[in-house]
Write a protein that binds this DNA or RNA. Structure first.
Length: 227
DNA sequence: GCGACAG
DNA sequence: ATCTTGTCGC
């Protein structure tokens, strides 16, 4: 799968959009048969104040205990500007470098951002999932596109995130009385399984433990000496 | 033209 | 994302 996708990140905005439209057709919303999750990973990127250096990290957790079992980080520089809708072209290069450092690939990856809840149904989580051929979920703190009603106040309540006549994800309440998150399947996962897993990964806080651990990891790395 | 706009 | 103090609430 990875071999059929051209790996160039120095693209024009127009070309990036064309590729998203092309690759969106390869995204699967089917959970693999017999799929079991032993290791769930969180991926995140942090930027230096100046905006000239960035750190990407992947933290793998034991899906049962949510204990950290492996972490990998990579340093880099922004190779693409931040443009809503073209987010993956900015954060994926360093994230892929971090994934290459893992000794054992995870069974599930939770991304900070959207999956198919995207203008062309190809957000960061979908892009990463397709490149690695691993089930992914996009869990964003805010909305990119789509409309929804306010979910009930209890943990587990969800409202469909709709764009036109399509349900592209869910506005999910992960904790009682706490601001909901935006969950959308990335690749190789059903929308229902995406929500179920986000709930499994949010036992105490608003955001998944995978996301929290990855966030803490990149910020720790930012404070370290420049290598 | 105007407003919206993942991190 | 990042810049930033105190403050209200459980």
């Amino acid at each position: 799968m990875q071999s059929v996708m051209k790996h160039a990140w120095n693209l024009s905005e127009k070309e990036a959009i064309r590729l998203q439209e092309e690759w969106a057709g390869k995204v699967s919303l089917e959970t693999p048969q017999g799929w079991k999750v032993r290791r769930a990973a969180g991926a995140d990127v942090a930027y230096d104040k100046n905006e000239d250096r960035l750190i990407a990290a992947v933290v793998v957790l034991d899906a049962e205990t949510l204990e950290v079992v492996e972490t990998a980080a990579a340093e880099g520089k922004p190779s693409f500007p931040y443009i809503p809708g073209l987010f993956s072209f900015r954060e994926l290069p360093p994230l892929l470098e971090a994934f290459k450092c893992l000794k054992t690939p995870p069974d599930l990856i939770v991304c900070d951002g959207q999956g198919i809840a995207h203008p062309r149904r190809f957000g960061l989580a979908s892009h990463l999932g397709l490149l690695l051929d691993i089930p992914t979920i996009g869990c964003g703190k805010t909305r990119l596109i789509g409309e929804h009603e306010e979910p009930d106040g209890e943990r587990g309540s969800a409202s469909p995130l709709v764009d036109g006549d399509e349900t592209i994800g869910y506005c999910l309440r992960t904790q009682n009385g706490v601001k909901p998150v935006y969950v959308s399947a990335g690749h190789r996962l059903s929308q229902a399984d995406a929500c179920e897993w986000i709930l499994k990964l949010t036992q105490r806080y608003r955001l998944p433990e995978t996301t929290r651990q990855a966030d803490q990891c990149v910020k720790r790395e930012l404070g370290k000496p420049i290598s």
